[in-house]
Measured scan of single mutants.
Amino acid sequence: MGFKLLSKLLVYLTASIMAIASPLAFSVDSSGEYPTVSEIPVGEVRLYQIADGVWSHIATQSFDGAVYPSNGLIVRDGDELLLIDTAWGAKNTAALLAEIEKQIGLPVTRAVSTHFHDDRVGGVDVLRAAGVATYASPSTRRLAEVEGNEIPTHSLEGLSSSGDAVRFGPVELFYPGAAHSTDNLIVYVPSASVLYGGCAIYELSRTSAGNVADADLAEWPTSIERIQQHYPEAQFVIPGHGLPGGLDLLKHTTNVVKAHTNRSVVE
């Protein structure tokens, strides 16, 4: 069995187990497998329904001669939608809004960016022009300005110390501490036991640490421990890039980060 097929099978099995364990909360999309990078042309966006009122959005972007996937989250909030992270750029984010209108038909009224990198804030200006209120932590807003990236308009308070959590509509926002970046936030959907790890969490097929220019490698494993301790009931975990899975993604990420750190020390 090929690795790609095995990865998709694991996603399907995880979703099936969740649907059985929580039949009222989960209505997993039966329309197909989780979209992969090879299936999404740059400039297009796919939506994948995880649970009743919960979707991931998947886009792709060219970077350094390669094409990478990027995940975000959409959560229903009454007759409105909360968006977590842009679709990595203005063109993708405009396509995301169009796809949401086509498939869901509810307005996106608020959006949260989970850290300051372009795959999370690139497209904020498109959201703002569409009347979406954009939010991020003060740290993310400051770092985005320093980096020359787009800056969300509103500040999220109460997320300055490791372990801080605040309720934001249908989700809980959690600051686990520094990891992929010093400002990275985690998003949890309690009604569906869905954990969105953003770039602080890796997919299972990833074996290298990737972009760690703004990471705190020493603190990252401790931050992941905080996530595990705060959300032990999480059933569906979405990484910032690639295929979702279960809580095993947290341990896998820790292993990859520690291996990278150990290699760096040896070198």
Rank of each mutant, 00 (worst) to 15 (best):
M1K: 04
M1F: 03
F3V: 06
K4P: 12
L5C: 07
S7G: 06
L9N: 08
L10F: 05
V11D: 06
L13W: 09
P23R: 10
P23F: 13
L24I: 12
A25G: 10
F26M: 07
D29N: 07
S30R: 09
S30I: 11
S30F: 15
S31N: 07
S38R: 09
S38Q: 15
E39C: 13
I40M: 07
P41L: 09
G43L: 05
E44D: 15
V45Q: 04
R46K: 06
R46L: 08
A51V: 09
G53N: 07
V54R: 02
W55Q: 01
S56M: 15
H57A: 02
Q61V: 13
F63S: 06
F63V: 11
F63A: 11
G65M: 14
A66C: 13
V67Y: 07
V67T: 07
V67M: 11
P69W: 11
P69N: 11
N71H: 02
I74K: 01
I74N: 03
I74C: 04
V75G: 02
R76G: 10
G78W: 10
D79Y: 15
E80L: 11
L81E: 01
L81R: 02
L82G: 02
I84M: 08
I84Y: 00
D85G: 00
K91H: 14
A94N: 12
L96D: 01
L96H: 01
I100V: 12
G105H: 15
L106C: 06
L106V: 14
V112L: 11
T114E: 00
H115E: 00
D119W: 01
R120P: 02
R120K: 05
V121H: 00
G122C: 10
G122I: 06
V126P: 03
V126M: 09
R128K: 10
R128N: 11
A129F: 05
V132R: 01
A133D: 14
T134A: 07
A136N: 03
A136T: 04
S137R: 12
P138V: 13
T140I: 03
R142Y: 15
A144Y: 04
E145L: 11
V146T: 13
V146N: 07
E147P: 06
E147L: 07
N149R: 12
I151C: 07
T153S: 08
L156P: 04
G158Y: 06
L159Y: 04
S161A: 12
G163I: 08
V166Q: 15
R167C: 05
F168I: 15
G169H: 04
P170E: 10
Y175L: 05
Y175C: 03
Y175G: 00
G177K: 01
A178V: 11
S181P: 02
T182V: 07
D183A: 00
N184F: 01
P190R: 06
Y202L: 14
V212D: 10
V212L: 12
A213L: 13
D214S: 14
A215S: 12
D216V: 10
A218E: 11
E219F: 15
W220R: 02
T222V: 12
I224R: 01
I224C: 01
I227W: 03
Q228I: 05
Q229C: 04
H230R: 10
H230I: 14
P232V: 06
P232S: 09
P232W: 06
E233V: 13
A234H: 00
V237C: 05
V237F: 05
V237D: 01
I238P: 02
I238H: 02
P239I: 02
H241Y: 03
G242F: 03
L243D: 08
L243Y: 08
P244I: 05
G245T: 02
L249F: 03
L249K: 01
L250V: 10
L250E: 02
T254K: 08
T254M: 08
V256A: 06
R263F: 13
V266Q: 12
E267K: 10
